[in-house]
Amino acid sequence: MKKSPETKRSLIRFVTWILSITAVMYVSSVPAQQINPLESDPRAARAGGVLFRSQCATCHGGDAKGITGIEAPDLTLIWAAVGTTDERVFQTIRNGVPGSIMPAHGFTDPETWMLVSYLRSVAATGATEFSGDAVRGSGLFLSNCARCHRVRGEGGSLGPDLSQITSRRSAAALVNSVREPSATIARRYHSVSLVFEGLSAGASGSRQRIQGTLKSEDAFSIQMMDTNQQLRAFMKADLLEFVRESDSLMPAFSRTDLSSAELEDILTFLQSQL
């Protein structure tokens, strides 16, 4: 029997339907995809970038490095954290972060994977493998750095924790931050100098000068850490002097202070602690 065009169309519809149902069943039987299906497609990161700039940049910044004053993280650093996977980033974009200002998003799966590809493409690249002497570096770190910097819970708090730093900064950036620490100063580590009237017994009226890092301020007060690593707060009206220093509290280490080989040792030690 010759099939009429009508019957043919119905048959095609039926087969298409069966196929799509099968596809849906197959997809729904697989748990959330764990591998970025667009990983090898170079267009994905580019398309993700367009999407990112229109949908995410308001909080995370056009370069994904976050915006001062908005508590949205620098997304170029997320890959350095232990446990960050493509799938986890996918889920964070999709579901948001409960209890934070990061909302859930209604992007399609391919769009979400494009965003993951884009974030991979802008990930801060960690340093290459250092080849110094980690043991010697450990000693050098203790004598030169540990008063202010911590590694794995050991050391001071005046400067940033360096436990993850070798996976977050390039070798050049790391060297530069030791040789020229004032070139770029991280948020909450800007240096301030204060002068105020001391209140020590019998010595009222004695002026005190302290230095530290500015943690926070409003129109009337400042919150800082002094060089003794004490958290202190002052009313601006009580300060005789309040100077925002352009230089970091961290001394610049020249090649005579710390040779290139010694610096390599320290960085090797830091890398060994990851």
Binding site: S54, Q55, A57, G61, G62, I67, T68, G69
Partner: peptide, 11 residues
């Protein structure tokens, strides 16, 4: 949304 670009704000 269709902002049509991106803005870099110097914080």
């Amino acid at each position: 949304s269709s902002f049509g670009g991106v803005v870099f704000i110097d914080g």
